[in-house]
Simulated scan of single mutants.
Amino acid sequence: MATKRHQLLEFAVLGLLHETPMHGYELRRRLNLALGPFRALSFGTLYPCLRSLVERGDITESASPATTSRRPRIVYELTDPGRQHFAELAARSDDGAYEDDGFELRLAFFGRTETSVRLRILEGRRARLEERLAQLREQARLGTRDTWASALHRHTEESLERDLRWLGELIAAERGAPAVRPGSLTDPNHPAFTPPPTHPTTR
């Protein structure tokens, strides 16, 4: 059975090839630069994935014309079954789509995802981060920390609050609704709401 990381890699490869045919070097470069889960991707991981997709018929491979300065490269292209497979994967909104690596990857291909699926993923991600924020604040209430642990706690809390506001804006844009969900931890009327810190201005 394919591992979760391998499944994410297959989805990423199919999504990138949906744009245009690419050779392995270009695929690796795009995966390293643009997609968080694969910023340290090696050819030893990429090429077995490509072979698996070729064997399944999701992509085809062909040699590009050779030049005097280099050997011909193998170019990979998406097939019609590959497009269908990608569409099926993009239509899923299970728990894996809300986790850190899965969410970032799904977001990268939201342009090829239906609105209803985008909303389910965004709302699922928001609920997951709200859980983390509530747990973090509970830990702060119960425990004591030294200066460095407190600084890390504040940074994590501020990052979660910032991400929740961003998700609220994305969801609002999809639904034409207010950016802050009433009753959530980022709602100023919530009893546990913590306003963002203010920083003194410098003159």
Rank of each mutant, 00 (worst) to 15 (best):
T45Q: 14
T45P: 01
L46T: 03
Y47Q: 14
Y47C: 08
P48Q: 05
L50R: 02
S52Q: 13
S52N: 11
S52A: 14
L53P: 03
L53D: 00
V54Y: 05
E55P: 07
E55Q: 14
R56W: 10
R56G: 10
G57N: 03
D58N: 13
E61N: 07
E61C: 07
S62K: 13
A63I: 10
S64P: 07
P65V: 05
P65I: 05
A66S: 07
A66T: 05
T67L: 07
T67R: 08
T67P: 02
T67V: 07
T68E: 13
T68D: 11
S69H: 10
R70T: 10
R70Q: 13
R71I: 10
R71F: 07
P72G: 00
R73F: 10
R73A: 12
R73H: 13
I74N: 07
V75I: 06
V75Q: 02
V75G: 01
V75D: 03
E77A: 15
E77H: 10
E77T: 14
E77C: 09
L78H: 02
T79P: 02
D80V: 12
D80K: 11
D80F: 09
D80N: 09
G82Q: 01
G82A: 04
R83A: 05
F86E: 00
F86S: 02
A87L: 04
A87R: 07
E88F: 09
A90T: 03
A90L: 01
A90R: 01
A90K: 01
A91Y: 04
A91M: 04
R92H: 08
R92W: 06
D94K: 00
D94G: 08
D95I: 15
D95H: 13
D95N: 14
G96T: 15
G96V: 14
A97F: 06
A97D: 09
Y98H: 14
Y98W: 14
D100R: 14
G102D: 00
G102A: 05
E104K: 14
E104I: 11
L105P: 01
L107A: 12
L107I: 09
L107W: 11
L107V: 10
L107E: 11
A108L: 05
A108Y: 07
F109I: 03
F109M: 00
F109L: 01
F110K: 00
G111W: 04
R112T: 15
E114S: 12
E114Q: 15
S116Y: 09
S116I: 12
V117K: 02
V117S: 00
